[in-house]
Deep mutational scan, measured.
Amino acid sequence: MLDDRARMEAAKKEKVEQILAEFQLQEEDLKKVMRRMQKEMDRGLRLETHEEASVKMLPTYVRSTPEGSEVGDFLSLDLGGTNFRVMLVKVGEGEEGQWSVKTKHQMYSIPEDAMTGTAEMLFDYISECISDFLDKHQMKHKKLPLGFTFSFPVRHEDIDKGILLNWTKGFKASGAEGNNVVGLLRDAIKRRGDFEMDVVAMVNDTVATMISCYYEDHQCEVGMIVGTGCNACYMEEMQNVELVEGDEGRMCVNTEWGAFGDSGELDEFLLEYDRLVDESSANPGQQLYEKLIGGKYMGELVRLVLLRLVDENLLFHGEASEQLRTRGAFETRFVSQVESDTGDRKQIYNILSTLGLRPSTTDCDIVRRACESVSTRAAHMCSAGLAGVINRMRESRSEDVMRITVGVDGSVYKLHPSFKERFHASVRRLTPSCEITFIESEEGSGRGAALVSAVACKKACMLGQ
């Protein structure tokens, strides 16, 4: 009897593995994704193909990295998701002549009506938060230079001027797309009239992360975010950046690689679950690469896999709870928690219980395998993109072996128990001629924006502006 049951459990697990095998990517698959990513990057950089390229390769006008001589107080704003952060950054000489960066910050959550109302409502709310922060720190009387981390696709015309191309991540505030974001912020500050600010720089969160990590390690020339969304930036040779005049030196390019796949480059790798996630998203047909990796989508992918296993009578005796059938019910943090389970399955059992399920031991094991399959594919897909960037940098610099540091931020990278190990191992397999160091950014977005502002202020002083 026991043997029969054991055989049935083994057969069930084997069927589960057959279904989950769809998520496995072979090294040849990853090399294919990497080569296609490089081709799209090239198209994004070139003037004649930029418009139709899915990977936009947006110039950021960040050319210099901090040298350690900029000092002063800077205000930093960070808008990239449902939370908005205001930070005071003091850049100065530390002990023994070292450079020191001290920060104080406060988080504000953005109400739904500000995210989806008008641009005026959104930026009025942001300036209200700045006003509140300055009151708390008794700094209303000071006109501070301000660095703005704005983590949406922007076409820069200068370091302090950028046109919002399109909202992502659930934002829909009308009247912002096609307009200068810094102008919208300046107008809102003017409307309030109770404080003055000098907006000197606007950067993407990947750029802010790279600059913040450069402060720790001067070989950091790539910034990457794996959180709600997924994106990367890197220092490109100016001669390859056709959208900006000049051939000397390097400029940081914001790849906006989340949109890779929007022209069909990933079609052969998309599964039924991916198509369902895409169809029910706020932007169907867009940001397809990001939807395979980002935390906004990972939990939902797992939920759809679990429903398939229920329908195949391989999980929960073929019956799903009402909660499990509800879109968004299986949160991405559950994926991390399930994979963090120590082996007694308590954590998995508790999560499934909150979803109205009474799982068996085998159910718990199957749910864990589903989570591992989805998150491992995410790590491997992400590795193909980064390997594409790094191999490109090595080739354009004609280096036999390139040493490089990548600064990384984002909740999936930082909080998932195995993502970074799987990701690092896969990147290294795909970049055999590179020695890569990964560092995690601390308060990256805010500190990085302030350091970019410090560079901009120093330049302005040198130019006598």
Score class of each variant (00 low, 15 high):
Met251Cys: 12
His218Tyr: 13
Val305Gly: 01
Phe438Cys: 02
Asp274Trp: 01
Lys32Gln: 11
Val222His: 01
Ala320Arg: 10
Leu270Lys: 15
Ser411Lys: 04
Ala370Lys: 00
Ala450Met: 10
Arg325Leu: 13
Glu331Thr: 11
Leu164Val: 15
Val367Glu: 00
Arg369Asp: 09
Tyr214Pro: 07
Gln347Ala: 11
Glu256Cys: 07
Leu309Pro: 00
Asp267Met: 06
Arg5Pro: 10
Met251Tyr: 03
Leu75Gly: 02
Leu25Arg: 01
Ile225Leu: 06
Val199Asn: 08
Arg43Trp: 02
Val408Trp: 02
Ala201Phe: 07
Val452Met: 09
Gly295His: 14
Cys382Glu: 07
Gln98Asp: 12
Lys15Val: 08
Asp409Leu: 06
Ala454Trp: 06
Gly328Ala: 14
Gly80Tyr: 03
Gln106Tyr: 05
Val389Ile: 12
Val374Thr: 04
Ile159Arg: 15
Glu256Ile: 03
Met115Lys: 06
Gly444Val: 10
Asn231Val: 08
Asn391Ser: 09
Ser174Thr: 13
Glu265Asn: 10
Val412Gln: 07
Leu386Trp: 02
Ile436Glu: 00
Thr361Ile: 05
Gly444Arg: 09
Val89Ile: 14
Asp267Glu: 09
Glu96His: 10
Leu301Cys: 13
Met57Tyr: 03
Asp217Ser: 04
Ser418Pro: 03
Gly117His: 09
Asp409Arg: 10
Ile19Gly: 01
Gly175Trp: 04
Ser445His: 14
Ser280Asp: 15
Leu25Asn: 02
Lys291Val: 01
Ser398Lys: 14
Asp274Arg: 01
Leu415Lys: 08
Glu216Trp: 01
Arg422Gln: 06
Ser411Leu: 13
Asn391Phe: 07
Ser76Thr: 05
Lys346Phe: 08
Leu271Cys: 06
Thr431Tyr: 00
Glu17Ser: 14
Thr332Gly: 15
Ser212Ile: 04
Ser127Pro: 00
Leu144Tyr: 06
Val374Lys: 00
Glu177Leu: 11
Ala259His: 06
Gln138Cys: 08
Glu435His: 07
Ala6Pro: 08
Gly94Thr: 06
Asp158Ser: 14
Ser280Thr: 12
Lys414Thr: 11
Tyr349Met: 15
Ala232Glu: 00
Tyr214Ser: 09
Val305Gln: 02
Val200Asn: 05
Gly92Phe: 14
Pro432Arg: 11
Asn204Trp: 09
Phe123Pro: 01
Val33Ala: 08
Asp42Ser: 09
Asp132Gly: 14
Asn283Ser: 13
Val335Asn: 01
Thr60Gln: 01
Arg325Phe: 15
Val455Gln: 14
Met121Ser: 15
Phe152Trp: 15
Glu95Gly: 13
Arg275Asn: 13
Gly92Ser: 10
Gly183Pro: 11
Gly299Trp: 01
Glu48Gly: 06
Asn204Ile: 03
Ala119Glu: 12
Val203Trp: 05
Ile159Lys: 15
Met41Asp: 02
Val302Leu: 09
Phe148Gly: 04
Arg333Pro: 13
Phe260Leu: 13
Asp217Trp: 01
Arg333Ile: 04
Gly80Leu: 13
Lys31Tyr: 03
Glu421Leu: 09
Ala21Arg: 08
His50Pro: 02
Met197His: 12
Cys457Ile: 12
Phe423Ser: 00
Ser281Arg: 00
Asp194Asn: 13
Phe195Thr: 09
Val277Arg: 03
Phe419Thr: 00
Asp4Ser: 07
Val452Leu: 12
Ile225Thr: 13
Phe195Lys: 11
Gly285Asn: 05
Lys459Tyr: 11
Met251Asp: 01
Arg327Asn: 13
Arg63Val: 09
Gly227Asn: 04
Cys220Gly: 03
Leu58Ile: 11
Arg327Gly: 12
Gly407Leu: 01
Thr326Val: 14
Asp29Tyr: 01
Cys233Ile: 01
Thr65Pro: 05
Leu304Gly: 11
Asp278Asn: 09
Thr342Ile: 05
Tyr273Val: 13
Ser54Ala: 12
Arg397Thr: 08
Lys414Leu: 05
Gln287Arg: 10
Glu272Cys: 15
Asp217Ile: 01
Lys56Ala: 06
Cys252Ala: 06
Glu216Ser: 11
Val452Ile: 15
Ser375Ala: 06
Thr118Gln: 15
Trp99Gly: 11
Ile366Asp: 03
His137Asn: 00
Pro284Met: 06
Gly223Pro: 01
Asn254Arg: 11
Asp409Cys: 10
Arg325Gln: 10
Lys420Gln: 12
Thr362Lys: 02
Ile130Asn: 00
Arg85Gly: 15
Met202Glu: 08
Ala188His: 06
Leu304Cys: 11
Asp247Ile: 06
Ala282Pro: 10
Gly68Asp: 08
Leu243Glu: 14
Met197Arg: 09
Lys143Asp: 03
Tyr297Lys: 12
Leu304Lys: 04
Asp135Arg: 10
Gln347Asp: 13
Ala384Ile: 09
Glu443Lys: 00
Leu314Gln: 07
Met298Val: 02
Val101Ser: 03
Val408Ala: 11
Met402Ala: 13
Ser340Phe: 08
Glu120Ile: 04
Asp160Val: 10
Gly246Ser: 09
Leu45His: 02
Ala21Ser: 07
Lys420Arg: 15
Ser69Lys: 07
Ile293Gln: 05
His416Ala: 03
Gly285Pro: 02
Ser360Gly: 06
Leu185Gly: 01
Thr437His: 03
Tyr125Lys: 01
Thr82Asn: 10
Val427Glu: 00
Gly92Asn: 14
Ala378Trp: 04
Arg428Asn: 10
Val62Tyr: 05
Glu28Ser: 12
Lys136Phe: 08
His156Trp: 13
Cys220Trp: 02
Thr49Tyr: 10
Asp4Cys: 06
Asp78Phe: 10
Val154Met: 13
Asp160Met: 04
Gly223Glu: 06
Thr354Ile: 08
Gly446Val: 14
Gly410Met: 11
Ser441Gly: 05
Ser398Gly: 03
Leu2Phe: 13
Leu415Pro: 03
Arg394Phe: 07
Arg63Asn: 12
Cys371Trp: 01
Gly356Arg: 06
Glu237Asn: 11
Thr65His: 06
His317Gly: 14
Tyr214Glu: 04
Leu243Gln: 08
Met57Asp: 00
Leu314Asn: 02
Val244Ala: 06
Glu196Met: 12
His416Met: 05
Asn180Ala: 11
Glu177Lys: 05
Thr362Phe: 04
Leu315Glu: 00
Ala449Tyr: 03
Leu324Gln: 00
Leu307Ser: 08
Val427Lys: 00
Asp205Lys: 08
Leu45Trp: 02
Arg369Tyr: 06
Ala450Thr: 11
Val338Leu: 04
Asp262Leu: 13
Leu88Pro: 03
Gly72Ala: 02
Ala232His: 00
Thr168Pro: 10
Pro111Met: 06
Ala201Ser: 13
Ser353Met: 02
Met8Ser: 14
Gly68Phe: 13
Gly147Lys: 01
Val200Tyr: 13
Glu70Met: 04
Pro59Asp: 07
Met121Lys: 05
Glu322Leu: 08
Ser151Ile: 10
Leu164Lys: 15
Asn231Pro: 03
Glu22Ile: 12
Met402Trp: 14
Leu122Pro: 03
Leu25Ile: 08
Met298Gln: 11
Asp113Asn: 14
Glu300Asp: 08
Gln337Asp: 05
Val401Leu: 07
Gly92Gln: 09
Phe438Gln: 00
Gly44Ser: 03
Met251Val: 01
Gly178His: 09
Tyr108Phe: 15
Arg5Tyr: 08
Pro359His: 00
Lys190Leu: 10
Lys102Asp: 09
Asp132Lys: 12
Val181Gly: 08
Lys414Phe: 03
Ser212Cys: 15
Arg358Phe: 05
Arg358Glu: 15
Leu164Ile: 15
Leu146Glu: 04
Ile126His: 01
Thr60Gly: 03
Ser109Leu: 11
Gly294Tyr: 05
Val89Cys: 05
Ile436Arg: 00
Glu112His: 13
Ala282Trp: 07
Leu144Phe: 04
Ser109Gly: 08
Ile225Gln: 03
Met41Ile: 04
Gln24Pro: 02
Glu300Trp: 00
Leu314Asp: 05
Arg394Thr: 02
Arg7Glu: 15
Ser396Phe: 09
Asn240Ile: 05
Glu128Phe: 10
Gln106Phe: 09
Lys420Ile: 02
Thr437Glu: 15
Gly44Phe: 00
Lys172Arg: 12
Gly72Arg: 01
Lys104Ala: 06
Gly249Lys: 01
Thr168Asn: 12
Glu395Met: 13
Met8Gln: 06
Arg447His: 14
Lys414Met: 06
Asp42Asn: 14
Met37Gly: 01
Tyr297Asp: 04
Leu292Gly: 03
Val244Ser: 06
Ile390Phe: 04
Ala425Pro: 02
Val86Met: 06
Met251Ile: 15
Thr206Ile: 04
Asp311Tyr: 01
Arg186Ala: 11
Ser336Asn: 14
Arg36Lys: 07
Val55Ala: 02
Leu30Thr: 13
Pro59Arg: 02
Lys15Ile: 15
Ala378Gly: 12
Gly178Asn: 14
Leu315Ser: 02
Lys161Gly: 07
Glu237Ala: 06
Lys346Gly: 09
Thr437Trp: 05
Ser398Thr: 04
